[in-house]
């Protein structure tokens, strides 16, 4: 693996994300707008002392979903349909370096997201609880799981279908993961939703950063299982052409 190639490819991946309007919309604009709107306007009863204490961890979960699944999945899907992945296969870059650069780019964009969203939430009066380590761990596991979903879509479906499915999944995750409103409001469906990676990620962040409670073992298991299973399936089914 050439460090020069890895550095250049990672920088290119990050720039291509940050330079394009539709990508910024999903990675920054929607999480920021959601955070500000829901924290300021009393739309949803959150059950926390301050609404921002609920919505700050929520949008940190959403940031991971938007970057690791939506942005990575859609961009990789189009690179596949444009023949870019095929063409890169004939260069000395190599797929391990390409994969590494895509993961580093996702982490890089997420760091910017966390910094921006964290700053805005702090401005809105959020005091993150001390569970930073658990929060970072949850973000990383969530990143692996959702990146796996992004790659799975990109490597098996047509780019246009990946676009639709990833955006649709984004809305579904937004709705049923305890991101827009507490999971308890889903009633009996909450038990099912808890088995999905979105709810597990949001739950881990709400516990670690929002209320300061410890993250339940069940949540860690669900998150870890998705982080292990989906990338494995994605790797096995990925088609470069």
């Amino acid at each position: 693996m050439s460090w020069r190639a890895l550095r250049a490819q990672t920088a290119a991946e990050v720039r291509m994300t940050l330079e394009q309007g539709e990508r910024l919309l999903v990675t920054f604009l929607i999480p920021i707008a959601g955070l500000v709107l829901f924290s300021v306007v009393p739309i949803v009863a959150t059950g926390t002392a301050h609404r921002v204490d609920f919505f700050a961890p929520s949008v940190l979960a959403l940031a991971v979903v938007s970057t690791a699944m939506v942005n990575l999945g859609i961009s990789t899907g189009f690179e596949r349909s444009w023949g870019v992945l095929k063409r890169l296969g004939a260069t000395p870059l190599g797929s391990p370096t390409l994969l590494a650069s895509k993961i580093l780019a996702v982490l890089g964009v997420e760091i910017v997201q966390v910094a921006v969203l964290g700053a805005i939430a702090t401005g809105l009066g959020w005091h993150p609880h001390a569970g930073i380590a658990a929060g970072v761990g949850a973000e990383l596991l969530g990143t692996v799981a959702f990146a796996g979903i992004g790659f799975l879509l990109a490597g098996t479906l047509r780019a246009e279908v990946t676009l639709a499915v990833a955006n649709g999944a984004y809305l579904v995750v937004l709705g049923i993961s305890g991101i827009m409103f507490p999971l308890a409001k889903l009633g009996g469906f909450a038990a099912v939703a808890r088995l999905l990676p979105g709810a597990a990620l949001a739950d881990a962040l709400h516990a670690s950063l929002g209320t300061g409670a410890s993250v339940s073992a069940e949540t860690w298991i669900v998150l870890a299982a998705w982080a292990l299973a989906v990338p494995t399936i994605a790797a096995a089914s990925f088609r470069f052409e």
């Binding site: 690179e79 023949g83 870019v84 095929k86 063409r87």
Partner: peptide
């Protein structure tokens, strides 16, 4: 055909 990033 293809093989180039459209945005670059």
């Amino acid at each position: 055909e293809g093989g180039t990033y459209p945005v670059l």
